[in-house]
Design a protein around this nucleic acid. Structure first.
Length: 413
RNA sequence: GGGAAGGUUCCCGAGUGGCCAAAGGGGGCAGACUGUAAAUCUGUUGUCUCUGACUUCGAUGGUUCGAAUCCAUCUCUUCCCA
């Protein structure tokens, strides 16, 4: 072990990021001795990054701290094709405009996490070189190096070969991603590609391609996918993914997601998603029973702080404490406004629940009330016909609650 | 291009003329128990103007008093052959 600062490689390993590596020893040595350029690709398939992407950004930040140079590759070109890896169905084809718009959003969001000043990091879009490729030339230069037999045996196509079939366009995805690596190697001397563990096949494709075409060694490394102790993907809820865009997932919801992870996952999340020193991660992770809630609070606060800033994290924490612990600032609880006039006339409770977003439909609101899951100002309300009026206003607001964890503050304006 | 089997509610999957808003399981939600955890048990899970009405079973058109179920055309998927 090193004296002062440990090698990034060791940091990544200790925190549990590393899943697979092409050549461990030489890579480790290189990361110790020289400043290297590496890349991670992000396909703009949606209009916001999600927590899976965030994990990649955390790795980039660790690497950047160790003075290595990250290249953020936006997959404006590869998204035109669509990565079939691990998918049972073909992805929906996105239009060029949609992809370009998503790519813009990605670029903005990523800039918040990675320092691009003074050439410390580079952002590129593979649309710049993929879109104008000449088909025949591409086949002759790149395609010739890929064995269809080998590709077919790859784990990542397995589900597709057994199930719904794989279209030719998707089959080409691997070649395009491999070509990206080659391109970045040539342009920026980038010789490491990183990514989620599901990217292993695609990464190997690039590593092999560089070896065959350039006769040079390149490296690949994959990270743990964020999964729960039960093996499910993390960062998904019934409502959909946990997005980094506050307009799609509010900081409060974001905070709550992490506050509610299961005991078994706390330590892993702290290690992967925060920059807290490992000693602290370990001591927090070792807490037992009810004590571990402290670790969850730290996790929720830290991750929210990284993604949304300290202010938002404090607000979310305050709201959570107000709702669950009794002390804290109710001001930051999710809320809707309602006019005083409307209140004078009276609003049906069921309608109000839907408006507050506590329930997607009135039928569900009705069920929730019938099952005793609705509270008005902390009082259980079981009357389906209940009309909310001025009498229900307490200190200028009405607290609506559905179940144990969904709250909405109704403001009278 | 030829042949076969299929497309059912969030997912898997039963249902072959009325008893079907559609079995069963998974998942979700709510209740109990808890620590804003897990496990367990119970209820619930299309919408609404809610003891009734309306919309849904790939799409369109038809047969019928009545269709998820029968017929025709289209479309998509999977498998076998070329």
């Amino acid at each position: 072990m090193n004296i002062t600062m440990s090698n990034v490689f060791d940091v990544l390993k200790e925190r549990g990021f590393i899943q697979q590596i092409t050549h461990e020893e030489p890579l480790k040595e290189m990361l110790e001795k020289e400043k290297v350029t590496f890349y991670i690709g992000f396909d703009p398939t949606a209009d916001s990054l999600h927590v899976g992407h965030f994990l990649q950004l955390v790795v980039m930040a660790h690497m950047q701290k160790a003075a290595h140079r990250p290249i953020v590759l936006i997959g404006g070109g590869t998204t035109m094709v669509g990565d079939p890896t691990g998918k049972t169905d073909m992805r929906k084809m996105l239009t060029r405009e949609e992809i370009a718009a998503n790519a813009e959003r990605f670029k903005q969001q990523i800039s918040k996490f990675i320092d691009f000043s003074e050439g410390k990091a580079i952002m590129v879009d593979n649309a710049d070189w993929l879109l104008d490729l000449n088909y025949v030339e591409f086949l002759r230069e790149v395609g010739i190096h890929f064995s269809v037999n080998r590709m077919l045996t790859a784990e990542c196509f397995k589900s597709r070969l057994e199930g719904k079939g794989l279209s030719f366009i998707e089959f080409n995805y691997m070649l395009m991603q491999s070509y990206d690596f080659l391109e970045l190697y040539r342009k920026y001397n980038c010789n490491i590609e990183m990514g989620g563990d599901d990217q292993w096949s695609n990464i190997l494709g690039g590593v092999d391609l560089i070896r065959r075409v350039e006769g040079k060694e390149a490296f690949g490394m994959t990270f743990t996918l964020l999964t729960t102790s039960e093996g499910k993907k993390m960062g998904k809820t019934e409502k959909g993914a946990i997005w980094l865009d506050p307009a799609k997932t509010s900081p409060y919801e974001f905070y709550q997601y992490w506050r509610n992870v299961s005991d078994a996952d706390v330590a892993k999340c702290l290690a992967l998603l925060t920059f807290l020193p490992m000693e602290e991660v370990r001591s927090l992770g070792a807490l037992k029973d009810a004590e571990i809630n402290k670790a969850k609070e730290v996790l929720a606060f830290e991750v929210t702080k990284l993604v949304h800033g300290e202010d938002e994290a404090t607000k979310a924490q305050s709201a959570a404490k107000a709702l669950f612990g009794g002390k804290g600032d109710l001001e930051n609880v999710p809320s809707i406004d309602i006019s005083a006039d409307e209140l004078v006339q009276g609003i049906k409770l069921l309608d109000l629940i839907v408006r507050a977003g506590l329930t997607p439909s009135k039928s569900e609101a009705r069920r929730a009330v019938q099952q005793g899951g609705v509270y008005v100002n902390e009082q259980k309300e079981s009357d389906l016909e209940k009309v909310i009026g001025q009498a229900d206003v307490v200190e200028g607001q009405i607290m609506l609650q559905r179940g144990k964890k969904s709250f909405c503050r109704v403001n009278v304006v």
